[in-house]
Design a protein around this nucleic acid. Structure first.
Length: 414
RNA sequence: CGGAGUGUGGUGUAACGGCUAACAUGCCUGCUUUGGGAGCAGGUGACUCAGGGUUCGAAUCCCUGCACUCCGACCA
């Protein structure tokens, strides 16, 4: 796209009341707009990033055999009463409202109850199982304190997935595969080396452990203990002798780190489906409860974590896999025709390119390019053409080099 | 939900209880310029978060509310 047509503008200074690095940079670059504390809208650049993260996640979930759906935000009270999670005493982050007719409804903070209720229409027999579904949904949570920019919001996008299995064995097969799929996602996002499968409390659903995916990050809210040799970790909340014994670890093999939770997966067991009355008929014609698992990835938070981890003092540095564009083509001086020709050629090759065709000084364009953080910067100007082509620089390179157009195409087609 | 802090043009800041609320940036016009946020000239833009109070006089002091940020609690 042509940058002159991009309706958002960068700004030199972040709003004074935004302290977190991720919010400052995302606002300065024009990726997000703050609506209120803990609530941000996505602008074109941010929307592109989010969509790319979603795409990577979706592909891995589909590989697992999951099918994408989208559930409603408005949720019926009685569904949640079946599992005794409607009450504010039980779940204190509910947003609730009322219909004109007086019926109370909830705004979805999670979806296992409605999805389980929905799926009752489609599951009757062991032959129908297992079923895996996922969605990308806006979750609404009345957090008592939103904080750290997009890291902890009241409204955010989450990928949630649910597995319905006939037995614990069938469930665990999927559960284990999900761990691998999740790690594949983080790898593709450039977080593979600093993200750990972390044993954590199973919450109120199970006496077993759940697993979190924790990315090492200074602004993270969690403390985890990372194994010095194996690539696993244990959440502070269960870092005690009893749990370590169960897991077969020794405390001295771990070191403490700060981390941000970028995903978590739970085994619910059969209890919830019993409460929700989701049963299937087994081979013997006996009614059995379905075995449920729940799997989340915080999409919005990932954008924040990635900003926090990769950005430098000039701006964002997006991993290529989720950058809003692959190439930032900057035209400088009277080279509009050559720039347009190259721009169109790149588009024809299927390369996503942002053409800075604005009438601005070089310094301002470079500063914006650094701020927006597109992985490859290509400069076309009278000077570059004199020197024999284009000036090429990766976002985290310090020096640019002159390359020809065909060299550029080779680099970008990789 | 406990504690602390902060609200001034779009943004970032300034202003002793006292003149027409200042500066920078942005934005608009024109000229000039074109390799790391260019220059000159002119212009635009704030009843100082809201409501009360103290005072001859309030952006400034007090009260209430609202909003935002930070620390803590919470985080299925």
């Amino acid at each position: 796209m042509r940058q002159s047509q991009l309706f958002t503008k960068t700004r030199k200074e972040a709003p004074a009341d935004e302290v977190s690095k991720n919010a400052q940079l995302l606002i300065k670059g024009g990726f997000i707009h703050k609506e209120m504390a803990g609530v941000y809208s996505l602008l074109p650049l941010g929307f592109k990033v989010i969509n790319k993260i979603k795409k990577i996640v979706a592909r891995e979930m589909e590989k697992l055999g999951s099918q994408e759906i989208i559930m409603s935000t408005l949720q019926a009270r009685d569904i949640w009463e079946k599992t005794d999670r409607w009450s504010d005493e039980k779940v204190d982050i509910w947003f609730k409202t009322e219909l004109k007719n007086g019926n109370q409804i909830g705004l979805g903070w999670s979806h296992e109850e409605p999805i389980t209720n929905m799926i009752k229409d489609h599951i009757n027999s062991y032959k129908d199982l297992p079923v895996f579904v996922h969605q990308f949904q806006n979750k609404l949570r009345n957090e008592s304190r939103a904080k750290s920019g997009v890291m902890r919001c009241r409204e955010f996008i989450m990928k949630d997935m649910y597995s319905y299995a006939i037995s614990e064995e069938q469930h665990m097969d999927f559960y284990d595969k999900t761990i691998d799929a999740y790690m594949e996602v983080y790898k593709k996002l450039g977080l593979g080396d600093i993200t750990y499968v972390t044993s954590a409390s199973g919450g109120v659903f199970t006496d077993k452990f759940s697993h979190e995916f924790q990315t090492l990050c200074e602004v993270g809210e969690d403390i985890i203990y990372v194994h010095k040799e194996k690539s696993v970790a244990v959440n502070e909340e269960i870092f005690n002798e009893e749990s370590l014994n169960k897991l077969g670890y020794k405390a001295e093999d771990f070191e403490m780190k700060k981390a941000a939770e970028v995903g978590n997966i739970f085994t619910f067991g059969t209890k919830k489906c019993e409460e929700m009355e989701l049963f299937f008929m087994d081979r013997e014609g006996k009614k059995q409860p379905v075995f449920l698992g729940s799997y989340g990835i915080g999409i919005t938070r990932l954008m924040g974590v990635i900003t926090e981890i990769f950005a430098d003092d000039k701006g964002m540095i997006w991993p290529e896999s989720i950058a809003p564009f692959k190439v930032h083509l900057i035209q400088l001086g009277s080279v509009a025709d050559q720039a347009t020709a190259l721009y169109e050629k790149l588009i024809k090759q299927g390369i996503e390119v942002l053409l800075d065709d604005r009438d601005m000084g070089a310094g301002a364009k470079f500063a914006d390019a650094d701020l927006i953080g597109i992985p490859y910067r290509v400069l076309i100007s009278d000077k570059s053409l004199e020197k024999g082509g284009l000036e090429f620089k990766k976002r985290n390179d310090t020096e640019a080099k002159i390359i020809t157009e065909s060299e550029l195409l080779t680099i970008l087609s990789k």
